[in-house]
Nucleic acid binder design. Structure first.
Lengths: 179, 179
DNA sequence: ATACATTGAGACATAGATGTTTCAATAGAG
DNA sequence: CTCTATTGAAACATCTATGTCTCAATGTAT
């Protein structure tokens, strides 16, 4: 049975999110394959990390394109982003601060573009009267990514069902934890 | 001039928060000392990481004790925690997921105790009608820590003044980013 | 100025991870 | 069944970080 690179990446993401220094051995084990096979798929650790970054950025691009197109119902600016919150939860730990990613100008530019688009979307939310205007859109974008991260960790630890995560993010993001 | 261990720890925290696998060399450089001196202060990498965890847990304990005592003004349950948000921002990355910390039952128990106390405090907030009751207190505690992390990162990147961070956390936590 | 303590720089062996290669076992296609 | 492709296991050299040590330079107290 030919090993699917995408499945390996999906298995590697939570491992590397918990410990960015996880060994190739540990990553292979979590994917249920041998280190040799992992090496054939991704000859270098850099290759693996960069492939993961590309996947995450692709997923973010998809969600952003979805959100940017969705102009009809005013309140739905964030719906697409919240529905596809996972890649945004992984952005910070696995893309922004990863030297193997930042070292490549190509990936670095994409990462920056994704964040800028997220900020722009938040600005649109502000302009539409959906989001508060007493804070820079940068803060709101970071807040969204942070909330996504929190929700993702809660699901990984089994404290939250993955179906509940989008509602959680929306609720806290729009109304907070106040009564 | 005798090197102060506490100052070294303070310098090491942001470095290790950004990259938990940062080398002793990099940590020493960020603290402005040589690797030899760093080794004299913390003979082992484990020693450094554990000392950092102890410091963070101590700071959390202090803030928690403060918050638990503060029973007079109902709305102020979270004031002490928000005022001392930094250690809570560092809890996840530098304490909870760090093998060198979790390996020591002593530190592991302390870490768990800190989170439980945070959850209990959120429950009190719920009982007082300050926080929403349609979510488990566990989620709210994680939300608080996540917001603290977001605020801390925004300050580290220069996007937010450190004075603004507590207000940001309070505002988002209680009222969200909605208009 | 002298004596002591602390630091910085460097050498050294060791451990762990990585990248490379080989080879036998196994799964699937024909 | 046979052949081919893919996998898993293992050995290997290499590299980096760590931990240990020595020694010269610096700073401080007396």
């Amino acid at each position: 049975m030919r090993t699917d690179a995408t499945e390996v990446l999906d298995a590697a993401i939570p491992v590397l999110a918990k410990d960015r220094g996880a060994s190739m051995q540990a990553i292979a084990a979590s994917a249920g394959i041998s280190r040799a096979t992992l090496t054939r798929l991704f000859p270098t650790r850099q290759n693996l990390v960069q492939a993961m970054a590309v996947k995450i950025l692709d997923d973010c691009d998809r969600a952003l394109a979805h959100a940017e197109k969705d102009t009809s119902p005013i309140e739905q600016v964030l719906t697409a982003m919240v529905a596809d919150y996972r890649p945004f939860a992984q952005l910070w730990n696995l893309v922004y601060v990863e030297p193997d990613v930042l070292g490549v100008p190509d990936a670095s530019d994409r990462a920056e573009a994704v964040f800028r688009r997220t900020v722009t979307l938040m600005q649109r939310g502000q302009d539409l009267g959906l989001l508060r205007k007493d804070m820079p859109a940068t803060w709101l974008a970071s807040t969204f990514c942070g909330l996504a991260e929190t929700a993702w960790e809660l699901t990984l630890e089994g404290h939250m069902g993955s179906r509940q995560a989008p509602d959680f993010i929306t609720a806290i993001l729009l109304h907070g934890a106040g009564a």
